[in-house]
Design a protein around this nucleic acid. Structure first.
Lengths: 248, 248
DNA sequence: CGTTATTTTGACCCATGTCAATACGGGTGG
DNA sequence: CCACCCGTATTGACATGGGTCAAAATAACG
């Protein structure tokens, strides 16, 4: 199951810059690192820690959060397989990263990253692109939190989860929400109760179906899209709403 | 669509770019560019435009915002002198940048930036540091919008304005808020009326004094700090203040 | 000065938070 | 395989922070 990772524990490069091949990508750099696992609830790093690595998730789900001095928690994001983590590394980590489910990831040390990046314009571009994605996600969240109503936030969240947890692209789009309702609430700036109520309302209205506690079927993504308001709109990927194709 | 932005094969920088002096800084690069001015209300660039330059503000104030499809506006930040703009340039601009007051800024083309950055590790560090600051600001806003009450948001905003518009560091700290109440409201995820009411309350409580529409005296920053809750706490800048202050 | 846009204040209401039961589901041990 | 338990989720009743609508006050500007 985990075995598919190429070249597990390949012997590591000595002098860092020696192995920057032509055509190297961040992807391949990550793939060359040994992979590690974390159990649910375990932290990969803590807010305020000095950044020392970049990470790329291969399995599972992480939540990113900060705790305020009075105990409130702000979840600033979730990380799904294929996404990277810690790309804003020019200072201490801005959040704690914690496993929602068992997680597998590859860790690339900053010294290796720098060596590679110093040697390749192409890699610099890729790194910048990942930082851009991160910033883009943060900006979306700012809009969600600053301008959207509870229903708009939840609709927006479900659509984005549908896009990313992607795996299951079949037409009654079924998504898996590994995180708890509390995680979702802290991410959307709402309470658990409000998140539940909106889920229930969407269910009553036939927009979604709840299968157990983690599986949700998006029965009518287009309607959710409309509900998500000006907020969740395009965001590139969203256009692949071929999901809507079901115009029975 | 993003293609025009990359600087793929820059093996031979043009003659003009070949001289990246030792000790070059982003600061000095900007300083070498001609400066331009914008009148109040004029846009420097629009959301969705291809990124083609980095900017550094020398005078005035900018607001950064996005407009949702139904007309709502989210102000995602303000820019004050000395701060840079457009550092997430690996894709289209994420917001519109518009002059709040008459503005003066320097514009550095991406091609020059790439040339300089390709030639200097030091400059790469500086660029990453600016991106980090940007991300850090976005994360603060996420916490403010997701977790803080109206009073906490306003207190937090005033303190941050005090830190940045900085000029006047004297002890009844007087700050200048060039932006309108609507700008502030759209930034804090509140309405104009709520912003006014909180200002009035702070005034009644002796925390601030309003001098005309733009000048505000912070009479009791410590109390504002306490009000700002877990949210506004340190914020980096505060640390550097502490570092310099402790020279006894 | 008079005119207009912006800000401030007031009265009222609603979306969402709070507090309090249930109800469900996923493990565990019998 | 079933019965029980406990943490999570859901629903309900109620409270309230902040939104909405409307008017008055103030500042900016010709």
């Amino acid at each position: 199951m985990y075995s598919s990772l190429a070249a597990p524990n390949r012997t590591d490069p000595g002098p860092a810059f020696s192995l920057v091949r032509e055509g190297e990508t961040l992807e391949s750099l990550f793939a060359a690192q040994p992979s590690e696992t974390f159990a649910s609830g375990q932290a990969v790093f803590w807010e305020g820690d000095a950044s020392s690595h970049l990470f790329q998730l291969t399995e599972g789900c992480l939540r990113l959060y900060r705790i305020l001095s009075d105990g409130r928690r702000a979840v600033t994001g979730f990380v799904f397989p294929g996404e990277s983590l810690g790309v804003s590394f020019q200072g201490p980590h801005l959040y704690t990263a914690e496993a929602v489910t068992p997680v597998r990831l590859n860790r690339l040390s900053l010294s290796r990253l720098y060596a590679a990046v110093d040697a390749s314009v192409h890699l610099r571009q890729q790194l910048l692109a990942r930082m851009y994605r991160d910033m883009s996600a943060a900006q979306h969240l700012i809009i969600l939190l600053g301008q959207l109503s509870a229903e708009e936030r939840v609709a927006s969240f479900l659509l984005s989860a549908g896009r990313r947890s992607g795996a299951d692209r079949s037409r009654p789009l079924t998504i898996d929400l590994p995180m708890s309702r509390l995680d979702i609430a802290d991410y959307l700036g709402l309470t658990i109760e409000t998140v539940c109520r909106v889920f229930s309302k969407f269910k009553r209205d036939g927009l979604i179906a709840l299968e157990g506690r983690q599986r949700i079927v998006l029965r009518h993504p287009a309607a959710l899209q409309a509900l998500a308001g000006g907020g969740g709109e395009d965001s590139g990927e969203a256009k692949s709403v071929r999901l809507t194709a079901r115009a029975h």
